[in-house]
Amino acid sequence: MTTDIWLPLPPDSIEGLPTPEESGFRYLFWDGAQEFPADPADCAFYGVPYLRGPAVAVRPLPGMTSLRVIQTLSAGTDHVVPALGTLHSGVRLCNARGVHEASTAELALTLTLAALRGIPGFVRGQDAEEWRAGFYPALADKSVLIVGYGAIGAAIEERLIPFECARVVRVARSARATAHGEVHALSEMPSLLPEADVVILSTPLTDSTRSLVSSDFLARMKDGALLVNVARGAVVDTDALLAELETGRITAALDVTDPEPLPSGHPLWHAPGVLISPHVGGSTSAFMPRAHRLLRDQLRRFADGGPLAHVVLTTA
């Protein structure tokens, strides 16, 4: 008897998968195409297509009556969670912890440095053959607030250490101690925001973080502060951010937006003091080998009947 495994990457590209002979697995490739590779009712392990959007991600779920595992290739699972109510109990949802931390942290640092040091203006100056000399803000001696201190938040802090920041402050859903120091609870944000020169968002999108960056949040940021978002677009209230950017009081560097993709003509494209990248935090040369390793390791665990890694929740 075979067990259907749906993978979002070609199975023959992933070295070291459990062999069909030893595991009974039948590997099927599905990257979100209109046609399913087989009957969803026979799928036991579902690897969610990467960067295909929530509509594609959840489309086969109602028919997956034999499903036991959902594995995303993203750190966030907000595109899948709303559809889990269609499933039977005991389905484990796993995220891609270990795949995106390095790349996303790199981009968070890149956006921070580029925005502070005026790199977008230099590029425009080069296009116009203008020598735009002057003094620009440095990251050195700045106070940085990391909102969302999970694996990605910790990776961001590791990359900030050589840049001689005056202070790095960590915030997560609840307070705790770490090897680097204290992590503050989200409830402490109002008192922490006025002291931060740079606020980096790396929190998951949940009911408690949706529109976390509201008009009140932004108003508490100090004059001249920089907001960097490598989390999810909906963590930020776009209208509130636009209103604040128009005043010129703060600036922003955004890898994610709401709506996303940001449509042509949207006012955020040309808002003063904003730098936008097209949600490429995890889309680097580091992605594929790490995604392969994750899928290989998880399927070995699944074949052996052992505990899976990175389980976010189990359906009731």
Score class of each variant (00 low, 15 high):
Pro54Val: 08
Pro54Ile: 01
Pro54Ala: 15
Pro54Phe: 00
Pro54Tyr: 02
Pro54Trp: 03
Pro54Ser: 15
Ala55Val: 14
Ala55Asp: 15
Ala55Arg: 13
Ala55Tyr: 14
Ala55Thr: 15
Ala55Glu: 15
Val56Cys: 11
Val56Thr: 13
Val56Ser: 11
Val56His: 04
Val56Tyr: 07
Ala57Asn: 10
Ala57Glu: 09
Val58Met: 07
Val58Asn: 06
Val58Leu: 08
Val58Gln: 11
Arg59His: 10
Arg59Gln: 09
Arg59Asn: 00
Arg59Pro: 05
Arg59Ile: 08
Arg59Gly: 03
Pro60Lys: 12
Pro60Tyr: 06
Pro60Gln: 12
Pro60Gly: 04
Leu61His: 06
Leu61Lys: 06
Pro62Ser: 05
Pro62Arg: 03
Pro62Val: 06
Gly63Asn: 10
Gly63Ile: 05
Gly63His: 08
Gly63Trp: 00
Met64Ser: 03
Met64Lys: 00
Met64Val: 03
Thr65Arg: 14
Thr65Gly: 06
Thr65Asp: 06
Ser66Ala: 12
Ser66Lys: 14
Leu67Ser: 11
Leu67Lys: 06
Leu67His: 09
Leu67Trp: 04
Leu67Glu: 01
Leu67Thr: 04
Arg68Pro: 02
Val69Pro: 07
Val69Thr: 02
Val69Lys: 03
Val69Ser: 00
Val69Arg: 09
Ile70Arg: 09
Ile70Phe: 10
Gln71His: 11
Gln71Lys: 10
Thr72Tyr: 00
Thr72Arg: 03
Thr72His: 03
Thr72Phe: 02
Leu73Asp: 01
Leu73Asn: 01
Leu73His: 10
Ser74Phe: 13
Ser74Thr: 15
Ser74Gln: 10
Ser74Gly: 15
Ala75Gln: 11
Ala75Glu: 02
Ala75Tyr: 07
Ala75Ile: 04
Ala75Val: 01
Ala75Cys: 05
Gly76Gln: 14
Gly76Phe: 09
Thr77Lys: 05
Thr77Ser: 09
Thr77Gly: 06
Asp78Gln: 10
Asp78Val: 04
His79Gln: 15
His79Leu: 12
His79Val: 10
His79Tyr: 09
Val80Arg: 13
Val80Asn: 07
Val80Cys: 12
Val81Pro: 14
Val81Ser: 04
Pro82Gly: 13
Pro82Leu: 07
Ala83Asn: 11
Ala83Val: 09
Leu84Val: 00
Leu84Phe: 00
Gly85Tyr: 00
Gly85Lys: 01
Gly85Pro: 00
Thr86His: 01
Leu87Asp: 10
Leu87Glu: 03
Leu87Trp: 05
His88Pro: 03
His88Trp: 08
Ser89Asp: 14
Ser89Cys: 05
Ser89His: 12
Ser89Trp: 04
Ser89Tyr: 05
Ser89Asn: 05
Gly90Ala: 04
Gly90Pro: 00
Val91Asp: 00
Val91Phe: 04
Val91Trp: 02
Val91Cys: 02
Arg92Asp: 00
Arg92Val: 03
Arg92Glu: 10
